[in-house]
Amino acid sequence: MQYSKKVLEHFTRPHNQGKIKNADGVGMVGNPKCGDIMRLYIKVAKTKGKSETLKDVKFETLGCGAAIATSSMVTDLAKGKTLDEAMKITRQNVADNLEGLPPAKMHCSNLAADALHRAIKNYREKK
């Protein structure tokens, strides 16, 4: 499996890894059958008169190199963004920022953006 340098960097030293206690939203994707499971936690900053932003984003992922690297990357991309901006982050954005993913990984292991969107939806539903 040919991974880019960027993927290997994020796989070896993932950013924002771990749980957020009392997270405002949690998003979970994947299943044990396919082998990749991601759980993404968000903490939302609410300032009066301004749109809500992602103060903190963290993840836990059981999965292959690409699954871990995309999880790490999506947290980097999402942190500090408004919720609406974060909803616009796509799988392709994640892959591009990782200098590409092997074709086989584009679908099965590139689920991090979905996890982020779910976490935001989860937050909005709870409100």
Binding site: Q17, P32, M38, G63, I68
Partner: peptide, 11 residues
């Protein structure tokens, strides 16, 4: 294992 946490538990 640290990275995966306990995500499997949910299943």
């Amino acid at each position: 294992r640290k990275i995966s946490g306990d995500v499997l538990k949910e299943f």
